[in-house]
């Protein structure tokens, strides 16, 4: 809101507030990240000392090695990855279909948006508990393959993927489709050869975001895979019942790929944030 010229007391106060807020924001982000890394790299004794040390006294790779070496953790890691890939494929694939229908048909748009919004209203427990009953009957409950969980994760990630792709599809001029139609392309060919290649970027973003949504998901994973655990429930158990070093090492391993991917996707998340001065 700084207008060049008049520097009032109000404006000065504003500048101070801005700096204070920046500091708060950076602290709020840096402290948890720092403690996570610190706990993962220092012996447990340090984490349980009184008062707990904010600065590391000695470093150890025991926990990180443990994450990789321990069978349980490796299994969880693999299961999480498998479930997330399957969920991302489902969400992106079906989300693309829905987004295309929504972008090209006004009635489908209304119906689609309503359906996607209604799914957001459903509390996790209300879906997960009966779903567990259904999955037990289908022999998909708590399996080593994680298929049942992947199915519900795909559905959870679908709305965001569909909205993202919808935004990409509506930008394609309808005249291009008409041209392809006159060039003799079938509806399927128009979709596959014209529209899909033009939304490649959005497809990649939707896949990554869906993957992460599944990778991070805790509630359904806790209820549907009580023994064949994915990473988030495992981190939960380690945090509440286990030791700090292992919990943090595991958390770190699960957070790093997420952070890299999301920071790389920052432009998608922040839209045109930078360069907008006011």
């Amino acid at each position: 809101m700084g207008v060049p010229g008049g520097v009032s007391v109000e404006d000065k106060l504003l500048a101070f507030c801005r700096r204070a807020l920046s500091a708060l924001v950076i602290a709020a982000a840096a402290i948890p990240l720092y403690l996570l890394i610190k706990q993962a790299l220092t012996p447990e004794l340090e984490s349980f000392a009184w008062p707990p040390a904010w600065l590391p006294k000695s470093l150890t790779l025991t926990y990180l090695n443990g994450v990789i070496a321990t069978g349980e953790l490796r299994v969880a890691l693999m299961l999480s990855a498998r479930v997330a890939v399957a969920a991302a494929l489902l969400a992106t694939g079906l989300g693309t279909m829905l987004a295309y229908a929504m972008a090209r048909d006004a009635r489908a748009r209304g119906l689609g948006l309503a359906a996607l919004s209604v799914t957001r209203l459903l509390p996790m427990v209300a879906a997960a508990m009966p779903l567990a009953t259904i999955l037990i009957r289908l022999r998909l409950y708590d399996t080593a393959s994680g298929l049942g969980l992947a199915l519900v994760h795909g559905a959870l990630a679908l709305p965001a993927a569909a909205i993202l792709l919808f935004g990409a599809f509506v930008k394609i001029p309808l005249e291009l489709e008409h041209a392809a139609y006159l060039d003799g392309a079938s509806p399927l060919a128009i979709f596959l050869r014209l529209n899909l290649p033009l939304v490649r970027g959005a497809l990649a973003a939707a896949f990554v975001l869906s993957f992460l949504a599944s990778w991070d998901e805790f509630g359904f994973a806790l209820l549907l895979q009580p023994t064949n655990r994915t990473l988030p429930p495992l981190i939960y158990y380690y945090t509440v019942f286990g030791d700090a070093g292992a919990a943090s090492a595991l958390a770190l391993v699960s957070a790093v790929p997420v952070l890299i991917a999301l920071i790389a996707l920052r432009p998608v998340l922040l839209h045109g944030l930078r360069g907008r001065a006011r």
Partner: peptide, 10 residues
């Protein structure tokens, strides 16, 4: 951006 469970753990 930090996974929810990781954030809560810390």
């Amino acid at each position: 951006l930090i996974p929810e469970i990781v954030f809560l753990s810390i």
